[in-house]
């Protein structure tokens, strides 16, 4: 049990810090302003590419970066499950504290899409049903 909790919180801290760092870096270069001004009439190509890159980095990369360090104890699908579980916890806290009303912004609005797609892709790769869960409790490997 202790090992499980250690893994859960250890990875969780990494995922939260990684997300925070990525947001800070993109905010430092004021890329959010470029994204707010994206429009079809006069497409800012660099802004568009950085927006795609941002979403790939925050949703796909964290578990991939973590996996080599925990591969003996954790499969890649479990890493993704933990990542999305922690993102859900962060989102729940964000909503509980009503920060969406104060900051007027929704956090992780694309989370469900990525959870579904990654679950689908991973189950295809491993050729078996692998749930990538966001709200279920962390389960031990059998």
């Amino acid at each position: 049990m202790k090992k499980v909790l250690k893994q859960f919180f250890g990875q969780g801290i990494f995922y939260i810090l990684f997300f925070g760092l990525v947001v800070l870096v993109f905010a430092f270069f004021d890329l959010g302003f470029r994204w707010d001004n994206l429009n079809i009439d006069d497409l800012d190509v660099l802004g568009y590419i950085t927006l795609i890159l941002f979403r790939l980095i925050i949703y796909i990369c964290p578990a991939i970066i973590m996996y080599p360090f925990v591969r003996k104890k954790c499969s890649i699908s479990k890493c993704y499950s933990l990542q999305f579980c922690w993102y859900s916890i962060l989102l729940a806290l964000y909503n509980l504290l009503s920060l969406d009303y104060i900051l007027k912004v929704d956090l992780f609005s694309k989370l469900d899409s990525f959870v579904f797609i990654l679950g689908f892709v991973l189950s295809l790769i491993f050729n078996k049903q692998l749930p990538v869960e966001t709200t279920d409790k962390f389960k031990q490997d059998k």
Binding site: F26, D30, G32, L103, L107
Partner: peptide
Amino acid sequence: KIKDRTFLEKIISVLRAS
């Protein structure tokens, strides 16, 4: 208005894309 944006506003506009 670019120069007048605070760092918090920049963070919020990045979070909007998440």
